[in-house]
Each structure stands twice: as structure tokens, then as C-alpha cells.
């Protein structure tokens, strides 16, 4: 499968937020302002790609070799948690500007199910390392795109009159539904 098909499939057709429902907590929580959305999205892109690399290597060289497949869940979450901690320390030391930009979002990513979801997803589909990394890249860019679109819509919503009972999360969910409806139009472009 060529690179463009993978990207279209991961970003638009199987968008991780709108079609697969992974990572909805930050989707609703971090989508109030565009700057926040970019910070969170950027952190997720970075960590997802790193996490997919490491979990793929763990799966193929440790779990499969020693026949420990049933430990997948626990190993993956430990790898992700450790990785996030490591990335945080590394950025703090080497790139303080990026660290302060991502700041509070980094530790929260551990429990973002998009990261772990992508790692398990590419594992279950049995992709090679390169394909897995391309998918991870595509899925996380799709996350960034959906988050950014939502933040744009919600910034406009702040200036609108909406019924009191719909304010906040309910209207955001309905907006997400409409956005998901729009993304459904991409179906058929790729698997």
C-alpha cells in the first residue's frame, strides 16, 4: 500500500477521533482554544510515533520471542508511561522552549487512549515497522486536525447564543457528531 493511501485512510477515512472514538477526553477538554489544541495535538503526534516505535519493537523482539503475548496490555502501558516520563525529562533538559510550550500536556498523554489505541491497533493488524510508523503518523495527524477544527468551531461558539442546557459539553458533542458526519463523506476513498 502506498504512502498516500495510508495517509488518506488514517487521517480522513478512519479518523481516530471521529470514526474510532479514541482520545475523546482531550478532544472535549483541550478544544476550547486553538493554541491549547495545537500544543496538545503536537504532543500527541510526537508521543504516538515514539510509542508505536517502541511498542512494536517490544512486541516483536521481547513478547513474541519469549511467547508472552498475554502480557501485551501491561507491557504497552508501562512502555508508554515510561516513554512519556523520559520525553518529559529529555525536553526539559535539551529543549526548554518546547518543554514549556507542551508543559502540562505531556504527563496527561499517558492516559490518552489514542496513544495506546494506535499501538494496539497496528499490532493487531500485523503491519511491518515502517507501515506501523506511517499509520501512527497519519492517525496522530488526524487527531491534530480534528482537535484543531473543533477548537476553531468552539471559539466561534463562545460568541453565539446557545440554549443554557446545551452549553458546554453537550453542544461540543453534537458539533463532534456533525463533524463526524462530514468525515463520513471520505468513506470509499480508501479502506
Amino acid at each position: 500500500m502506498d504512502v498516500i493511501t495510508i495517509f488518506i485512510s488514517a487521517i480522513f477515512v478512519n479518523n481516530i477521533l471521529l470514526a474510532q472514538f479514541l482520545g475523546n477526553c482531550p478532544y472535549l477538554g483541550c478544544s476550547r482554544e486553538k493554541s491549547v489544541a495545537i500544543g496538545m495535538g503536537g504532543a500527541v503526534v510526537f508521543v504516538t510515533i515514539m510509542a508505536t516505535l517502541f511498542t512494536w519493537l517490544m512486541q516483536h523482539f521481547v513478547l513474541d520471542t519469549f511467547d508472552l503475548g498475554y502480557l501485551q496490555t501491561i507491557v504497552f502501558i508501562v512502555v508508554i508511561a515510561g516513554l512519556v516520563q523520559f520525553v518529559e525529562m529529555f525536553l526539559k533538559k535539551m529543549m526548554p522552549s518546547l518543554y514549556s510550550a507542551l508543559g502540562i500536556y505531556l504527563p496527561l498523554i499517558t492516559t490518552n487512549c489514542a496513544v495506546m489505541g494506535v499501538a494496539i491497533l497496528v499490532e493487531r493488524k500485523g503491519y511491518t515497522l515502517i507501515t506501523s510508523l506511517l499509520y501512527a503518523c497519519g492517525y496522530s495527524l488526524g487527531f491534530l486536525l480534528a482537535l484543531l477544527l473543533m477548537a476553531g468551531v468552539r471559539e466561534r461558539l463562545d460568541t453565539c447564543r446557545i440554549p443554557k442546557m446545551m452549553a458546554g459539553t453537550p453542544i461540543a458533542l453534537v458539533m463532534a457528531g456533525l463533524m463526524s458526519l462530514a468525515f463520513m463523506a471520505f468513506k470509499g476513498m480508501a479502506q
Binding site: P170, I171, V174, L178, S180, L181
Partner: peptide, 16 residues
Amino acid sequence: APGAFICLGLILAGMN
């Protein structure tokens, strides 16, 4: 997928 978001949104509005 869209039904899930819209349904939950409306239920939350109802809860409010």
C-alpha cells in the same frame, strides 16, 4: 459514529 456523539450530547443536555 455520528449518532454516538449526537445521542450522548442530547442526553447530557437532558441531564443539565
